[in-house]
């Protein structure tokens, strides 16, 4: 299986672990994820305003490149996934945005939303299969683990179609596949405070510590996430519960987390 892969800027810097362990795990599972060349940051936030074309262009470039290379694009960062998937939906379903973006970009071939955008977790579930992951596990993670979904993977559900936005199960299924026990807690799809941690720290801290104390209160020994911003906000909220990238735990379970 070969997929185009878009790591995004944070996975090249502060969230290197999220990227490195994703690559190692993919290799161990017999999947090739090929980084797209010459990509630019997706911008981190989707613009809901249809008159804002420029912020959509870097995503369209990424999508068009993936279209040339097999048509399946894998993302990991929740924010990248949200932005790119929603821009793809615009290119498919919003004729005005499609026209203006294509006219501006002058690609060899017009881009009309042909690429399938998959989050790494969706790739694991739909392309590899959690059963096959279970078979590949060498070191089961024998822990009670809380899945933290946050917002961007789930909403807006009409476009993201990731899972049931009010009662998601994909990360819990993932946790089971790597030998852990999922802990379902009420705040798993509540916002961590997002970018407010730059402008209104007390607000972000309140939101993040509510998430972690909810997880802890339900017996979680750690929380896993796919989002570098969630990771940062949760870590600095002052609660003492380990926060780990889901790819790191996957690599550990597959026995490929060493420096080989």
């Amino acid at each position: 299986m070969v997929f185009s892969y878009y790591p995004g800027c944070t996975l090249k810097n502060q969230a290197k672990d999220l990227d490195i362990y994703a690559r190692k795990s993919a290799q161990a599972l017999g999947i090739e994820i090929k980084e797209i060349d010459e990509w630019q940051c997706c911008g981190g936030v989707y613009t809901s305003s249809p008159d804002d074309i420029a912020p959509r262009l870097s995503s369209i470039r990424i999508l068009a490149k993936a279209k040339e290379n097999g048509g399946k694009l894998v993302t990991i960062c929740s924010a990248c996934h949200n932005v790119i998937k929603r821009v793809n939906d615009d290119m498919k379903n919003n004729a005005d945005i499609n026209l203006r973006a294509n006219n501006f970009m002058q690609l060899e071939e017009r881009y009309n939303g042909e690429t399938a955008v998959l989050h790494y977790l969706e790739m694991l579930r739909d392309e590899v299969g959690f059963d096959n992951i279970k078979k590949a596990v060498k070191n089961p993670i024998n822990k009670k683990i809380g899945a933290y979904y946050g917002c961007l993977l789930l909403r807006p559900n009409g476009v993201m179609a990731f899972d049931n936005p009010e009662n998601p199960t994909i990360i819990e299924e993932f946790i089971k596949a790597i030998g852990g026990t999922p802990v379902v807690y009420p705040f798993r799809n509540e916002c961590c405070g997002a970018y407010a941690s730059l402008k209104n720290k007390p607000l972000a801290d309140k939101k993040s510590s509510a998430v972690l104390s909810s997880a802890k209160g339900h017996g979680a020994e750690m929380v896993i996430t796919a989002c570098p911003l969630c990771y940062y906000n949760l870590k600095r909220s002052g609660e003492d519960l380990p926060v780990i990238y889901f790819t790191e735990l996957l690599a550990k379970a597959l026995g490929v987390d060493g420096d080989e």
Partner: peptide, 27 residues
């Protein structure tokens, strides 16, 4: 809603790019 001066000094250590990029895009 935000200026470069408001970015705290710890910026190089911990703050993910994602936060800076999205806050500047938003504000």
């Amino acid at each position: 809603g935000i200026t470069a001066e408001e970015i705290p000094a710890e910026v190089n250590e911990m703050i993910p790019q994602q936060l800076l990029v999205s806050a500047f895009r938003k504000y």
